[in-house]
């Protein structure tokens, strides 16, 4: 059999053409089905049990009799009387992949320290991969535009912050003390040089205690200020654009400090800002 490398190359290239199959809607239906579909237990596990003792046989036989009696009895009952139909419950989907999100409930990937469930209220939002793979355990985000960039995107981020640069405009090795509590981190943000910050206020998010503050960047960045850095989450660096605004909820979820961020730009439409707010307000934490 002779290979035809030219044809193989053409076929591979053709098969990989972007046809934009989007499985998002399919997943929505699937996960509703999963809620009502029991798994088939492994036959090979059962076969591993080499024998049953007498007691097992007696109990097994008794159980079989009970089940048979129940089935026989059930066959004489009128059907569909007084038994409500099983209705699929709306399932939360993972915030994963790179496809556009449909409105619905999502949860942040299971390798994040706390399960965060939230609702995307409108069309057009995307899962945003800040740094593919590198910082997955410390940061997640979704945006109203695929690229999250100015002039008109809005976004929501979930972070485990590990440090703040001492100077947001000249991020070097110096770090601010972020302490262990949500108050410590809020104070550090409020005191960060080159940022415009509101005073932190106490609040709650998802029924957990939180500190809230708003931060912005002067649209006319100071001379010599190239990249403005907001914070670090392990090896992830959160850079900012000129004019970018952040609303931060620093939350204490049973001892785990999380930061929920809603961000936007001067050109972001009000609807997108509102959608970001709605997403944050819908958040539920499961420690």
């Amino acid at each position: 059999m002779k290979a035809d490398p030219e044809l193989e190359r053409i076929v591979r290239s053709w098969l990989r053409e972007d046809r934009q199959e989007d499985a998002e809607r399919l997943l929505f239906a699937l996960l509703a089905d999963v809620d009502t579909t029991p798994q088939r237990q492994a036959g090979w596990l059962a076969r591993r049990i080499p024998f049953m003792n007498n007691k097992s046989i007696r109990y097994g036989t008794a159980a079989a009799v009970v089940i048979a009696a129940a089935l026989l009895g059930a066959s004489f009952l009128p059907r569909n009387v007084g038994t409500p139909e099983a209705t699929p419950s709306p399932s939360a989907r993972p915030l994963a992949g790179t496809t556009q999100l449909v409105p619905g409930t999502y949860f942040v990937h299971e390798d994040f320290p706390v399960r965060i469930t939230f609702t995307v209220p409108t069309e057009g939002w995307h899962n945003y991969v800040w740094e593919r793979g590198a910082a997955s355990a410390n940061t997640r985000a979704l945006c109203s535009r695929p690229n999250c960039d100015p002039p008109d995107a809005a976004g929501v981020g979930f972070h485990r912050i590990t440090g703040l640069p001492a100077d947001a405009c000249n991020p070097g090795f110096d770090r601010l003390d972020v302490g262990p509590t949500i108050e410590d981190l809020a104070d550090a943000f409020a005191d960060q040089p080159r940022r415009i910050a509101t005073d932190p206020v106490e609040t709650t998010l998802g029924d957990f205690p939180a500190m809230y503050l708003e931060l912005s960047v002067d649209p006319e960045q100071p001379v010599g200020c190239g990249t403005i850095v907001s914070f670090y989450a392990s090896n992830f660096t959160r850079g900012l654009f000129g004019g970018e605004s952040q609303r931060l909820w620093i939350v204490d979820v049973d001892g785990t400090r999380l930061v929920i961020e809603a961000f936007d730009f001067p050109g972001t439409p009000d609807e997108a800002v509102q959608a970001a707010t709605d997403i944050v307000e819908s958040i539920e934490f499961t420690p």
Partner: peptide, 28 residues
């Protein structure tokens, strides 16, 4: 039986599965 874990598995693979089956079946 962890449905969250399965949801992650499915979400990570669904696009690829759909693309492969689309190419096999020739009908989206």
């Amino acid at each position: 039986g962890d449905k969250d874990a399965f949801a992650v598995l499915a979400a990570e693979r669904a696009d690829r599965y759909l693309a492969a089956s689309h190419r096999i079946l020739r009908d989206l």
